[in-house]
Design a protein around this nucleic acid. Structure first.
Lengths: 116, 116
DNA sequence: CTTAGTGTTCGATGAGCATCGTACATTGCG
DNA sequence: CGCAATGTACGATGCTCATCGAACACTAAG
């Protein structure tokens, strides 16, 4: 492919962290936040690569939202891909569950809406 | 003042929270702290009611230590009982695991010493 | 090219919390 | 009783982090 084939974006690719290299403390800290819990749950209820960052119903602005996704990436919880102007997401279920068995289930299979 | 019957301590009994009434966010926040993780691990390696609060090898003062145990109690992770001048502890393994399956295992069955 | 949509980065702000030092309470011992 | 040991309560301090506003970058469409 001589010419700049599709896939070579000019945009800075999101930095991903492999769940296997994430410490327990990092994972727990990432998950101990109401906004991020909501993001994870909402993301889990959608098919992979179907949700852009701005499509989540969270009570924060763009800047904070971007920050939260950065934290989730750093914890190996979310994978992102640029698709045109938007950045679509995918929950790394199997990979994260292999590193921290049961943790993701705790967040998703939860009856209480973390009231408190 | 009239005399006190045996078994009626003058000391304020520690306030305990049942694990069943703890929200996911509270539990995760309690556990997302390096000092508290160390306390839980050290406590898990000892028999019930054998460790007083001051017997843990953590790099904080008495006041902070007392605070951490308060948080652990509030998350339903630790039960305390007054035994003479000291306050001895017990990890609520079964009860906490019933409420948050796998979470305690994640902290204990850990290979990495939360290095980061 | 211009415009609109999407997301990141930067600096600043504010709240929460981990920590400390000190004072205080309780217990057990000499 | 007086004293040491243990743990809590309180006020203060400092730091981390969640948030915002604004500026910037990239993409797609008109």
């Amino acid at each position: 492919m001589p010419k700049q084939a599709a896939g070579c974006s000019h945009r800075a690719a999101p930095v991903h962290t492999d769940p296997g290299e994430v410490s327990v403390l990092t994972a727990l800290s990432a998950v101990a936040d109401p906004v991020r819990i909501q993001l994870i749950r909402e993301l889990a209820g959608s098919a992979d690569w179907t949700r852009s960052c701005g499509s989540f119903d969270v009570p924060v602005g763009k800047a904070a939202l971007s920050h939260h996704f950065s934290v989730l990436r750093g914890a190996g919880l979310v994978e992102q891909r640029d698709e045109g102007p938007r950045r679509v997401n995918r929950l790394r279920r199997e990979e994260f569950d292999a590193r921290f068995p049961g943790l993701l289930d705790l967040l998703l299979r939860t009856d209480d809406t973390d009231s408190e």
